[in-house]
Write a protein that binds this DNA or RNA. Sequence first.
DNA 1: TAGATTGTTAATCGATTAACAATC
DNA 2: TAGATTGTTAATCGATTAACAATC
Lengths: 223, 223
Amino acid sequence: MYYVNLIFCGGIMDVRNISQAVITRLPRYYRFLGELKDKGVERISSQELADIMNATASQIRQDFNNFGGFGQQGYGYNVELLYKEIGKILGLDRQHHMILIGSGNLGHCLANYVNFERRGFIFDGCFDKDPELIGKTIRGIEIMPMEMMEDFVKENNIDMAVITIPKSGAVEVADRLVKCGIKAIWNFAHVDLEVPDDVTVESVHLSESLMKLSYNRTHSLRE
Amino acid sequence: MYYVNLIFCGGIMDVRNISQAVITRLPRYYRFLGELKDKGVERISSQELADIMNATASQIRQDFNNFGGFGQQGYGYNVELLYKEIGKILGLDRQHHMILIGSGNLGHCLANYVNFERRGFIFDGCFDKDPELIGKTIRGIEIMPMEMMEDFVKENNIDMAVITIPKSGAVEVADRLVKCGIKAIWNFAHVDLEVPDDVTVESVHLSESLMKLSYNRTHSLRE
DNA sequence: TAGATTGTTAATCGATTAACAATC
DNA sequence: TAGATTGTTAATCGATTAACAATC
């Protein structure tokens, strides 16, 4: 059928009302389809994909149909086409310009993920408040002092920021980022950031993930 | 009332049938209660906590009552007691002995989180297949070759492992870890690990998190 | 005691699964 | 055409919210 965004908006934007449960599954579909594509698989049915991914065929068809009819009755889905379409839906067909706030261990390791760059996420600058770090480089990019953040964001059309500083400074930095026009924040600080409606935050709370593991380990079936 | 584990098991184990949705929220409760405790707040009602956490009072009471009645009618919840109880539920009242598989950037940065140690997660050893890294140290612990993994796990009563190697090697390593008795795996490789029932896996798929951010940023309300 | 707030049951909402007509 | 498999509607399941009696 048609994309929801065409029906609702006429413009190029806004697939509304998709639940976060569905959105969370999209990158996983993308991963499995990419692997199938690399293996040379041309087509796949929802049932076959369900078997591979440990899901139900029903859920897979429902999920895909949120964004349009990518399949063909009696045939299934074309792997390459579906892979590309989900990539587009995820916004991987465009470039995202990012800065890194906090150039410590974690920031360093994120900036070095070559794969991110390959998917259109480009590190343009990194910042730190530690004078010791200023002038050193990450992936060839000089670490700048925090005071330069606002100007750099505006001059370089940055739209995403990665926060890897401790929670104590994160709220203030997020406010500053929002004020200078950042639209997406990947937050690794252990705090919930509050931002306006048009700004997106995705938080990775590592310690909460570890505690969840601890819970499940502690209450596992056998000992 | 009573703990579910007492009702069902008689033993010290196994609060069964708690949904992962609830478990995912527990560390967040733990965080907010810890902050309240540090501020010297003694008691709090479900409604007050809901306001702070952006949740509903109903959900909070339902969640807590999965594990027993920690509150008191007309009074609310004692912050310190609740904090401690949730810590226990999460398994933070005991020590977990961990090893790190993959001593690169990410492994390095995880091992350096002092906070984990404070919560009972103890790094006992780290491993890498890169001969260049063997003998170097992380937090004073010597990096060992992969071949020593099994013996080390058995000799040191290790029950958790953190996998920070690329996906290509992760499946094989996970199998080896399961075979030598590891019961919990914190997985940062971009692959779904399959393990027996009595082993828990918690995966952190950073690239999927970034794609989710990308989706929400791409389809945000305004431009 | 009266007021406050829990613990818990009932109602609602949303997400997942099942079923099947449409159609390639 | 017959068989396969989608797109989509209907049924089920589970999680969240509302309501209220119990009780501190």
